[in-house]
Design a protein around this nucleic acid. Structure first.
Length: 340
DNA sequence: AATTCGGGGGG
DNA sequence: CCCCCAGAATT
């Protein structure tokens, strides 16, 4: 653990010159960030890179400029704005939280924010410090890596990292300190090939002294990828189709083609269940779609059939990438061969 | 403490 | 192919 009194001015003066200009860092007259923008951006950036977050932030704020309009919108419109961004529980929780705020007011404290759905220790500390000036230290992937390196601790626990962050937090500029630590992690103290030569904390860093800073922290263990095979039925075409709203934790809230999971390698059985459920005609083979997610590999076998079901415009519903790929089997023209 | 939840960037 | 990303909720 480096000396906080020595490290704070070094990092903050670096931050004063090199802070990233980001749209959610718009500063209000009182010097603090706008809580709505901070909240939306923090949720958007959970497990999502900044470059990608920028695009969705723009989209989301155009659709829902303030918490009142977010609360007034139907959940499906919120998911539509979030479409393609992943971890859709974030969008559903954002919507629920907005409705709580519309009814009871926006919290102004760390504890108050923590009580909202989709707001955990990281997001509560970020909003409390950036928008309300509260002394709360954020601990995200960047901070964890920086702290691991400064102290030379290869396997930091969440508890350890949070305690380190709490002690290091600059009590005079808690919001700036938090952003500074994250900016350092994102632009200098990167996971691979950190740019130690230009790091303001180089002389205080145990990992730099070790000669191989990239070895800190040790990589996390990952769960095995689960392989899933499913059958989907396309009724309609690539633009007007019969869609169902998914429930449960996987892609919950999004819409997509009706599907049945294949068990015991019995594709025909799954297809039969699907046809019976929808009272559909004999199915025609369309093609296969492979979709990889972090922890799951889905092979979707897509068929086309006729059934007396209402068709809806695909573009008006929030769909996952998986379903967009399946619909593209029919919407896309056959790849042309070059002749001569 | 370990899993689960998307999708893409970058080595 | 691999790890990682301004994490949170559930088990």
């Amino acid at each position: 653990m480096p000396d906080p009194a020595a490290v704070r001015p070094l990092l903050l003066s670096w931050f004063d010159r090199h802070a990233r200009a980001l749209p959610w860092r718009l500063t209000r007259p009182d010097g603090r960030r706008d809580p709505y923008r901070v909240w939306i951006s923090e949720v958007l950036l959970q497990q999502t890179q900044v470059a990608r977050g920028l695009v969705y932030f723009e989209r989301f704020l155009t659709a829902f400029p303030d918490v009142e309009r977010l609360a007034a919108a139907p959940e499906e419109a919120v998911l539509k704005a979030w479409e393609g961004c992943g971890y859709y529980a974030r969008a559903r929780n954002l919507h629920r939280a907005a409705r709580e705020m519309a009814a009871s007011g926006m919290p102004t404290t760390h504890q108050g924010w923590l009580a909202l759905p989709g707001v955990g220790p990281y997001t509560a500390a970020a909003v409390a410090s950036l928008a309300f000036g509260e002394r709360q230290a954020v601990m995200d992937g960047n901070v964890r890596r920086v702290l691991s390196r400064l102290s030379g601790v290869r396997e930091p626990t969440d508890r350890w990292a949070q305690q380190q962050a709490d002690v290091l937090l600059d009590p005079q500029r808690p919001g700036d300190w938090n952003e500074a630590l994250m900016d350092l992690g994102a632009t200098i103290c990167t996971p691979k090939s950190p740019r130690c030569a230009v790091c303001p904390l180089q002389t205080h860093c145990a990992a730099f002294a070790s000669g191989d800073p990239a070895q800190y922290p040790a990589p996390k263990k990952r769960a095995a990828v689960q392989v899933t095979v499913a059958v989907a039925l396309l009724i309609g075409d690539g633009e007007q189709a019969y869609l169902e709203q998914r429930t449960g934790t996987l892609l919950g809230g999004l819409w997509g083609l009706p599907l049945e999971e294949v068990r015991d390698v019995d594709v025909a059985g799954a297809l039969n269940r699907l046809q019976q459920r929808l009272n559909a005609t004999e199915a025609e083979w369309l093609g296969v779609v492979n979709h990889t997610m972090t922890h799951r590999q889905i092979q979707l076998r897509v068929y086309r059939a006729q059934a007396a079901k209402p068709l809806t415009a695909v573009g008006g519903r929030p769909l996952s990438r998986l379903d967009h790929k399946a619909l593209a089997l029919l919407a896309a023209p056959q790849p042309a061969l070059f002749a001569g």
